[in-house]
Each structure stands twice: as C-alpha cells, then as structure tokens.
Design a protein around this nucleic acid. Sequence first.
DNA 1: GGAATTGCCGGAAACGTTTCCGAGTGCTTC
DNA 2: GAAGCACTCGGAAACGTTTCCGGCAATTCC
Lengths: 349, 349
Amino acid sequence: MAQADTQREPPFRGRATIRDIADLAGVSIATVSRVLNDRPDVAPETRENVLQVVREQGFSTNRGARGLSSGRTGMIGLTLPLVADAYFGPMLSGASEALYERDMRIVLAPTFHDHDREMSLLDRLMRGTTDGAILMLPEESADELRMLQRQGFPFVVVDPREAPPEGIACVAAMHASGAKQATEHLLELGHRRIGAIAGAQGWYATEERLLGFRAALAGAGILLDPELIVYSDWRIPQGTQAAEQLLSLPDPPTAIFGFNDNVAIGALHAAHARGLSVPDDLSVVGFDDTEPAKIVTPQLTSVRQPLAEMGRMGVSLLVRLIEGQRVDALRVELATKLVVRDSTAPPRA
Amino acid sequence: MAQADTQREPPFRGRATIRDIADLAGVSIATVSRVLNDRPDVAPETRENVLQVVREQGFSTNRGARGLSSGRTGMIGLTLPLVADAYFGPMLSGASEALYERDMRIVLAPTFHDHDREMSLLDRLMRGTTDGAILMLPEESADELRMLQRQGFPFVVVDPREAPPEGIACVAAMHASGAKQATEHLLELGHRRIGAIAGAQGWYATEERLLGFRAALAGAGILLDPELIVYSDWRIPQGTQAAEQLLSLPDPPTAIFGFNDNVAIGALHAAHARGLSVPDDLSVVGFDDTEPAKIVTPQLTSVRQPLAEMGRMGVSLLVRLIEGQRVDALRVELATKLVVRDSTAPPRA
DNA sequence: GGAATTGCCGGAAACGTTTCCGAGTGCTTC
DNA sequence: GAAGCACTCGGAAACGTTTCCGGCAATTCC
C-alpha cells in the first residue's frame, strides 16, 4: 500500500523537494511550507490537497534545510560517559523516547570518560547542528557550565557530578532520601554494624548518599565507626575489594550498603568467595536498581532511581528552555524508593 | 587557555559564520571553505592564517548548511530495537566510537520494537538529514530492505533478523561455529544429554545456532531428542520457563545450552529454584557473552560475540558505501569464541 | 456603495555552506 | 619576448527550507 500508484505524474529526479510538491499541487512553496508546519492562513481545501500530494510522494521535509532557514534543527545533542551501561542505558532510553514523541532526534556523543576536552569539544561541534543539549553526568566543572550557558546555548544537566550550580537546569535523584531508606531498612532488620561502600569521593551522589546514611544511623542512636566507610570508583572490582576490607575487620559488619549496584554486586562476589551466604551471613543493599540487580543471585535489594524518567524529565526541561518558555523549577529532584528483594535479612543471632 | 584573548576584534553577534572568519582573515569565504575541508589550492601561509582565526573564534562549520550545500551531512542514522540493553549497548558503543573517529555523528532512532512502520517511518524521516544508516536487527523484511536500497539510500544491516538478502551490506556473527564450539565443550566434559533453549523460531540466529548445535551432536554420534529443544523469546523469564520444562523431563538433561545469555541466566534461576547446584548438578552455557554473564554467580560460560566490533565494522562498510567505493565483501561474518567460566563442569557420576 | 477588514496566497530574501568557473599573478619555455 | 602553465584566490550560483511582506478577492461594516 505504501507503493500505491501515484495518481499524478511521478516526475523529478531523485528525492522530492517542497518545490516539486508545490508544482504538483499547483500552489506556491510558501503554501506548502505552511501546511507542512500546521500554520494558519491556508484554506482547508488547499491544505488537504497539498497533504494528498505529500502522501503520494512520500515526501518529508529536509531537516537540514529547515534548520538552516529557521534556526531550529529538531535535533538535540546528548553527551554521556558511556552508552553500553546498565546505568546510562535507561536514561538514554527515556530521553530518546521523550524526544521521539516530540518528533525530535538525538545526536549521540559518548565521551568515553575523556575528561580533558572531549566534552567541550563535542558540544562545540554540536552547536549549529542541534537546538540544545542534554549533558548526562558531565565532566565539566560548574564554571565551564556557566560559561556554556552564557553563550546562550540551551542545555540541561542530568545527574550532575558535582553539586549543581545555581541557575542551571538540572535533574537529579533524591540521593539522601534513598540512602536513608536503605539504611533504615537494614536497621529495622536488626543490623547494628553496617558497612558502606561509598562511591568516588567528592561526587555529588556520594556526598548526598553519605548524608542519608549518617542521618539514618544517627536516628537509631548509632555513632558511625569511620572504619566502616570505604570509598570506591563505583565499579565491581573495587566493590569486591572494599567488601573484603570491610569483612576483614576485627569486628566485621553484618550488612553492607553499596552506593551503587556495581559495588554491591562486588560485595556479593566477595561474600561468595569467602563462603559467606547472602543474606544469611551478610545482608547487602545496592543503589540505582539497574538491570543486574535483578539477575544476580540472590536478587539484590536496591534503591530504585527512576533513570528513564530522569532522561524524560531532562528532555521536558530542555524543550521548554529551547522554546524560550519560563521554567519555574530549574532544578528538579526525582524520588527514589527502596525495592526489597532477597539480599537482605535479619543478622544471624 | 581555551579562554586566551582573541588577538583580533571579537565582533559579530551570536555565532561566528564562515563569512566572519573570512572577513577576519582577510580572505574570501571560498578560501575559508577550502582550508576547512583540507582542499588543495591554498597557499600554506594563507591556510595557517585562516586556521589561526578559526581557532581564536572557536569556529566550527554548520553541519546543516554543509549538508544542504554538499549533500553530505556527516551524520548517519542508527536504528535498533532497544538502547538500554546489554546486547545492543556494546554494538551501539562500537559504532559510535568508529563514527567519532571519522568525525561523524550518530542520529539515534530506537524503534522500541514497534514492528509495523516505525522503522520505515524513521529512516524516511532521516533522509536528507543523514548520509546513510546502520540498521541493527531491523524489523524490515528482505523485500522492504531491497526497496530501500533501490532508492539509493546507503545502509548496512548489522545482525540481521532473517537470512541476509543478496546484495545488501551486512555484518553478522558466526552463529553456527559458536554454537558448535559450545556444544563440543559440553560433550568434552562428558555430557550426553544436552538441552537447548533456542531463540525465537525463524530468526536467523536461532536457525544458524541450531545448525551448529546439531552438527556437534552428530559429530559425537549422538542423535538429537526433539524434546530437548525448546524455543523462547530470548528473554530471562522464558529461559526460566524453558529450563523448568527441560528439567521436568523423565530423563532430564545434565547440561543446558541457552541460545543467548538471557535464557541461560533464566536457566540459572530455574536451577537455583530447584535447589540444583550449577555446575555440579547442571552445566549451563550461554551465548553472546554480554556483561551479565560476568556478574551472575556462577559466572557464565558463554560464546563471545564481538558486539562492539560488529558495530565498528558496520560503520566501516557504511562509510565505504557512502563514499561510493567499491566494497568487495558486502557480507562479513565475525568470528565467535567460547569463553569458559564457572557454569560448566563434568556431569555428576 | 465605498471603505475597512479578513482570509488566502505568492514573491523573494534570507540561512551558512560548497563548488564551479574564471581571473590574476609569477615562472618557465621556446 | 610572447605564449603557456601552475598556483592562488574570489565571485556567484546553488542546496531546500522558513518567513516577512504585500496583494488580491470576498466579506463585513457604517
């Protein structure tokens, strides 16, 4: 049916342009442009006629040309450290879905953790090609971000690495609240000595989650043993290593709170290697609730971050920014929620 | 240093254009264009002078305009079913890396498995915006692909769903060989009753892997019990279900070969639920060797598919297609290789 | 019944590039 | 010493849109 015979002449070489459509429909290109963009000032009959020809010819407007002419390309740039990742994947997915609904497209720019100038280089390249950008876990400092902003390029940062600077659109998760929930869950189960495998030092997520962890402990009247906190690089091997360090303590913890799923899974491996049973001998909680949390055995209790929703929300903010609408809430925080699975239980008596 | 003072006037409103650069450098825009595109016919001195101004102004050429004028946008479209996925992630990653090296960009178009027209709609939209496309596991039939090709749009399919049609650029993995290796590994360990959790029926990958599976069995003089093959939708829950079915057989298999990691992990779960120990009571092999294979306990023996390399190779083919170079090998198959981990062992005596 | 308004539409100038064509140098060559 | 060539460069026409501005009809208003 897509191949239905074209009623009118099927002429012109190559791809149809707005000019061809105009000729075929017997109107001017201005009119065609108007119907294509749902502008007023077109008679219903004319509009329908043009649309008919458009359908027949399978025409779609050249976005490059539109971008040149109107200044709006309908594409937005998206940078992130990694694309093949259980954490960034859902964010990207959420963003691309939201963009798709708006008939916009994503120009992907993975930075592969090239701290130096990768990022600034990338979005420099992007200007003129995109209408704005979403920066996921940007490498850039607050100063650099502010500079970008001063140049009038619309962007929003999703999941900031540092504390998000004032006046920059930003979506994050409620780290502290999530960490508090997780810790309280462990507390309620009866754990008193709880180890934490934190993330990288200085990161916003690390600091905030530490805050929540401490708050919960304080609420239970427990004072924190500094030995029970060890930092990591967020990755599995360091999680394993950190857990080993924790479990080698003279008075080892009965539960471990990993600041993301990776390090929690690392802890699972460490326990397994020691012949410790989870959750009987050791409880483990993760953070993020990424896909791996569900496939690991035992399934991991974890704090759910609405990753896809963060991507969508980023798009939502960005679009409003681009359209010049006033955005009242430049900074949005999405709720986190503990998901209890099989890796947590009361401590052994 | 990126902020070094601009020696010359820092004029013009907004973003610098090639016109501004030309004025600043005291040459014509044609000359600027030539140096920007590394064309000959520019005096070394002039070239250096222009480059200097370009650097000072942080100029980068407007890709939209370039696309309009030259017909080459430097962007390529990439469609895939899912972006947040352990299987497609690495492919996407490899492709984006390869594109980055060529100073090209990816326009992402996830189809979210919308079989109907999503795809055709998407790349229709892409024309005029992109120079070509990479189709990962396309929903489209061979006929539709051929039609696309006839329209002169360069594209390559990576990981075809059906047997790849003649004359279409395509990169795949050596499914049969990998499946044969996996099965032989099990046979060498002494297994004689081996169950298979196949993928979706009719898929290229499924059929090819079945071929390898059968070949290995035949090589060992074992004739296949049809009960030992059950199809799935490639996903974990159906893997679990299929494994349960297999393990409930009067004479259950001592090893299970999952046609991807998902269903193998599903089998792991089923074994765990039955109190069966892997690999002591049951050996399990997966396929793809995605990230989850490494984090699951026990770590999964799996057939490695060079996912990222497939993405890169796709780009390589596509670029040659776009540049109109003759590509001799339109169809490339990448080797697979068994990675032995902890989920396989000799059967219990 | 003329003037003002409204509804539709076309002409044409942008938008920022690339590229073809030709022109001006300064050298070689016979 | 004129002709030819190689090397550089600039002018200008595209590329496919959007959008401003103005024009013509048909309607409405006093």
